[in-house]
């Protein structure tokens, strides 16, 4: 289970927290004051009050030890930059996702050590553009992959000793065997780039490669179990 620390009281924080299921993620909201913490608790999330400028308090909540992901969702870019720098100094491997208000702050956040920058306005702009230019695709993806239907997109890493090791992608036949579509493969031994499976030369899968598949949740789960089952099928 991933432990996520959420900083910054905003609509985005609640949207993100609401979408992360408690079965897979342990969420902790870090409020600036007790009122904020009470409001978050009222919505059913765990909350603590800390001063994010104090490294000891950051350590106390588990940054550097057991926090895997940090959301920096403060409305001020400067707060997010400061928190990112502090967190990165405490933990080199923690995944930091930060929002940006002014686009000029994006490179600063990256320089501070953020892994992913989220610009809500850019995303909204892109979404509107998608809706406008390719409404069918935007609509289908919104309702299925990103929506309430059980059609999902998933990534599956091939573990050592998996039966998929040294198998060619055209031998998989996920379409008929598993009702899944193999969208892409990240070839970790070659270039760590995404290779889309659109009828080109097949790839030979190796341990450590990541398969990006699309399909019903149940089928994905079954296939994941099969892949992660070390040894022969």
């Amino acid at each position: 289970m991933k432990r996520i620390a959420v900083f910054g009281y905003s609509s985005l924080s609640f949207e993100a927290m609401g979408r992360l299921t408690p079965d897979h993620y342990s969420l902790l909201f870090l409020a600036k004051n007790t009122d904020e913490a009470a409001l978050v608790r009222a919505k059913g999330f765990a909350a603590e009050t800390i001063d994010f400028r104090n490294d000891n308090e950051l350590r106390a909540i588990g940054i550097g030890t057991d926090i895997d992901v940090i959301f920096c969702f403060y409305p001020d870019d400067s707060d997010n930059v400061f928190l990112t720098i502090s967190a990165r100094a405490l933990d080199k491997h923690v995944s930091i996702i930060a929002i940006v208000d002014d686009p000029e702050s994006a490179p600063k956040l990256l320089a501070a050590g953020a892994n992913k920058i989220i610009d809500p306005y850019e995303i909204c702009g892109r979404k509107t553009h998608e809706m406008l230019t390719r409404p069918d695709i935007a609509n289908i993806l919104d309702n299925t992959v990103f929506g309430r239907h059980d059609l999902k997109l998933a990534q599956i890493e091939i573990p050592h000793g998996s039966w998929l090791d040294n198998i060619r992608t055209d031998q998989l036949d996920l379409k008929n065997r598993h009702n899944l579509l193999l969208i892409a493969v990240v070839d970790n031994t070659l270039d760590e780039q995404l290779h889309f499976m659109t009828g080109g030369n097949p790839l030979v899968l190796k341990c450590g490669d990541i398969l990006v598949v699309m399909g019903p949740t149940g089928k994905i789960k079954l296939f994941k179990n099969e892949v992660e089952h070390v040894g022969n099928r």
């Binding site: 609509s11 985005l12 949207e15 979408r19 989220i118 995303i123 909204c124």
Partner: peptide, 11 residues
Amino acid sequence: PFEIAGMVVAE
């Protein structure tokens, strides 16, 4: 905007 951004973060 914030719903989509939240979804992006979660995914």
